[in-house]
Design a protein around this nucleic acid. Structure first.
Lengths: 310, 310
DNA sequence: CTGAAAGCGCTTACAG
DNA sequence: CTGAAAGCGCTTACAG
């Protein structure tokens, strides 16, 4: 097996007494070749016995890309949704003999370039794109059907159905590329539901600063009776702020979260929130990245998890 | 530039009127070659103008490995610690011109093999190994100095310092490779502190099941006055269970978490917990994976974040 | 100081 | 049906 420890195509060819080309044809089930059953067996047998595994790097150099899919995820977008999404993506990719590799943190064009050049992945997925634009999800039939837009609307609708017409949106304190989009979608939904377009405010991480922010906002907008969180983290902070301010939830103020992260079950009152089938979104992204159809895959529609905060 | 869109070494060589070898020497600053300043400049200039970027796959095929480090992380080990750890790892690797790619989910030997073959990473890090064994951290001087053992001891010590001698450990419901190790370390610490070795129990995710588990355990062990959580998730579940059982925290039972995930600030009472400098652990792992020294890097010691639960 | 050549391990026209 | 050959883009002895 050469000089290194690795078993190569050469070794298999030598062991089975055919050329490298033939080995490659057999192992890759090339449909354009007709190779005798005897030869096939001999080659496969030899490959098995030698423990041959194709060298992906060489294959990638030759084919132009490796059987790897890279997911880029910005630091600010990580959360419960992304976690489930990754699970789905990983599982579906594995089912099609690809591996998922995730790039966390902040990505500059150079670093992205470096990854591309280093491993020539079959596809690079930018996390959030699907969900955000709903573009791929559109393929299932209907723009707002199961994207962020639909879910933003679901969140607001729950509030409206509970009698709230003046709603505010609580946003993270840090810059999130999703914040503006979310706000836009919620605005759309408000118009559809015939309620005023919600105002928004940021929620600092530090509890007393957050309480101040909530208080300041509510002083300016005393008509607001319900707050819709950008996500559960934000909603949880609002819940704490309201408690510190002595406002009762849901009696004085209703609060609803987004993307049920589980921790909303631990507060008093529990946080009502929106649950999204992120795992299926991940599977969908996988199929689309590989150029497969969406198959029978259909994400479960989002649903409201009712606890006590609204 | 060849037939594809890519600029290769060949293109740079042609543009600067030298051979491919020379281009390679110049661009890689090969110390064994002496190349005239004029030629160097010409080559570098041409590379810059053409926007040449070395093809990592080809380089990996030639050199045997790519400038990529892979982190394997099992689904059960993800949490706050891993999140910070990844940030540190990513940043430090980037500082040394490597990129971090994370493999989530469950890993079989075959899938690991596939990754290895697909991208020939410079190193593969198994998450938790460092922290768990404290092996790498030992290098900083002293086995228990800043690993899981030391932190388990810190958690228990806080309880003992607050007058608790009969402590129980709450574990996750799922199999965690860390659980046994944790228990062992806490046992060691108990002996050192001269208190009985803590018993343990599992905490189901489902709230009523969890309450039952807590109740059953405490009925068997009425002498227990404090519960140490495997992590904050577990401790938070215990907190909820105790509330549902009508036991007051900390008066009837003290609770302490582990690996401050932030959500402990949202409960009533707030969860006292142990905060670990995972980011520095990540940086350390990066340096060790690349075969660099640990430099001046020294993780901050873990500390107890005091809230109200003990 | 510089260039021609080999080779990393694979795939795939092309010629028998 | 099968094999010899080229080539993916790079690095590095080796020979001038």
């Amino acid at each position: 097996m050469g000089n290194s420890g690795r078993v190569t195509l050469n070794d298999v060819a030598a062991a089975s007494g055919v050329s490298r080309a033939t080995v490659s044809f057999v192992l890759n089930d090339d449909p354009r070749q007709t190779i005798s059953a005897a030869t096939r067996d001999r080659v496969k047998q030899a490959a098995r016995e030698l423990g041959y595994v194709p060298h992906g790097v060489a294959r990638a150099l030759r084919e132009g890309s490796s059987r790897v899919v890279v997911l880029n995820i910005e630091a600010g977008l990580e959360g419960h949704y992304s976690h489930s999404y990754i699970q789905g993506l990983d599982a579906e990719l594995a089912a099609h003999e690809h591996v998922l590799l995730v790039r966390h943190g902040h990505h500059t064009p150079q670093s992205t370039r470096q990854v591309l050049d280093a491993i020539a992945p079959r596809a690079v997925i930018r996390f959030g794109e699907t969900y955000l634009t709903g573009r791929e999800l559109d393929d299932l039939g209907g723009g707002w059907r199961d994207g962020l837009a639909a879910h933003s609307a679901l969140q607001l609708r729950h509030l409206v159905e509970h009698g709230h017409t003046h709603v505010a949106v609580a946003l993270p304190d840090t810059e999130s590329p999703l914040a503006a989009t979310r706000l836009k979608f919620t605005g759309h939904a408000a118009r559809n539901l015939g309620v005023p377009v919600p105002d928004s405010f940021a929620t600092p991480l530090e509890p007393s600063a957050c309480a101040e922010a909530v208080e300041a906002f509510l002083t300016e907008a005393p008509e607001v009776t319900a707050i819709a969180g950008f996500n559960d983290d934000v909603a949880l902070r609002v819940l704490m702020a309201l408690r510190d301010l002595g406002r009762r939830v849901p009696d004085d103020m209703a609060v609803i979260g987004f993307d049920d992260n589980g921790y909303g079950a631990y507060t008093t009152p529990g946080l009502t929130t929106v649950h999204v089938d992120a795992e299926a979104h991940g599977r969908l992204s996988a199929r689309l990245a590989l150029g497969l159809g969406t198959g029978a895959l259909r994400p479960l529609p989002a649903r409201v998890v009712v606890r006590q905060s609204v």
